[in-house]
Every structure is written in structure tokens, then in C-alpha cells.
Amino acid sequence: MIRVTALGHYFAPLEDDALLPPLQAALKEAGRGQYRRIDRFVELALLGAGRCAAGRKLAPDCGLYLGSGLGPMGDNVRVQQQLVLERFVPMPFNFINILGSNAGFYVAKDLGLSGQNYFVSRRGASFEAALELAVMDLELGVVRQALVGVVEDVSLPLAEHRLRQGLAPGTRLAEGSHWLLLETSAEEGCKLEYTRHPDAVSLQLALSTFPEVERRGAPTGPFHDSLTGAWVTERLRAGAPQGLIVTAGTGLFHFRP
């Protein structure tokens, strides 16, 4: 039986004329370590994962499953400017920061983890993709504890970030980092069940058996890869007495109180 035993959450809507809110104080409050030359994406990952693990000693072999639709955009933009506009070899720390595995490395270092560590993407459903891999490993017994998160950062100016994603001018943007701790040996916590269905008809039949449960299918919006993660962490934090259903393709997650 898989249970959700902790939640971690950071969400910040962004104003067009404002700078990105500094995260150092929040990181310090969450008791996270200080690291040089990390980027915004890593800071967001450290903050959300740190809040999820707050007050707990995670098992060193806890698996880490980080999803993101766009990855570390700030440093990707900076590297491309250095290379194409300024025509310089990218600065080493900027180049390292664009690697998908970078954020997982710092979260593992910060929380003392040495187990499985994945960065995975599926545009529009990166949280679900990470969750599927974590459930897979928990069910197979590859890991007994899994930290699952989704992180989306933005790059300034926001007008360019919107343009990059084909969003209309003025579309509200936000940063997010949303995490769940899943365990197979816990006695308490919301239960998580996952079933795969061969096709959409089978999935609809299964869904019809949960009339009272809150559902979320493919999310849409300007920061949509983190939307499901945000929805799940917020609803579970609020108790979600009827439970939650998240669908990903023909797979169905059922969070059951």
C-alpha cells in the first residue's frame, strides 16, 4: 500500500513589473543548505522538497522523481545569449545549471539521499510522468520511499517568457514547486492507488465508479506542468475528504483518505 506521508509546496504568482521574489529567506526558514552558483530552478526544487521533508529524516535510499515541462529556463536563456548573441563559450556554472539532473543532485545532497534520482518530462503532464515512475518503483520494491515533485521556473522578462510559450500578452504567470513523499511501509497518510487501463473506454468506465471524487484530467494554463502538482498538494493539505482522482493518459491515480 502506497501512502502520501508529507507534502511540500511553493507557489508564487508573478507581477509583470516586479523582480522574482528572493528565495533565500524561505530556504533558510526551511532549514536548507546554502550552495554557491545554483540557479533559480535549483532553489525552487530545494524549497519545495525541503518543505516536504521538513522535520523528517528521509531514508538514504529514498528515490527522487522530479518532473518539469520546461526545465531550468533562466540558465538556458543565459547560455544561449552567451553563445549566440555574445559569441562566447558558456560560463561553466551556467552550462552545468542547464542539465536536468542538476536540481535532483542538490536536493539529494541537501536531504542526504543517495538512491535513485530521475528528472523526467512530459509537456503538460510532467508531474504525472514523475508520479507514474515513482509508483512503478514503489510497486516493484525498487524503493520504499519516494520524493516526487514538479518544478517550473520562469525567465525574465515575463513578456518574453510568454512569447516563448505562445501565451497571450498579459497571461498571468507563476513559479511553482510541489512535492509529495510516498511510502509503502507507513501506517498513516492518504492512500494512493494507480491503475492502468488499456483504452479510454475502460478508463471512463473506471471513472464512473467514483462519482463523488474530485477529478483532474489534462491541465491547461500558462504553467500547466506544475498545475496538477499544485492542485494535488493543495487539495490534500485541505483534507480532500472525498479523495482525488488524477488521470494521465489511460492511467488513473486515486488518492484515498
Binding site: G71, L99, G100, S101, G104, N117, Y118, F119, V120, S121, R122, A129, E132, L133, A248, G249, T250, G251
Partner: peptide, 14 residues
């Protein structure tokens, strides 16, 4: 369905 890994040099091994 698809899953895409970006874990540097271990990406496709993962």
C-alpha cells in the same frame, strides 16, 4: 504514453 529523461549521460540508460 511517453517519458523523457534528462539526467545527463545516464539519460537513455535510465
Amino acid at each position: 504514453p511517453h517519458w523523457t529523461w534528462n539526467t545527463a549521460c545516464t539519460s537513455s540508460a535510465n
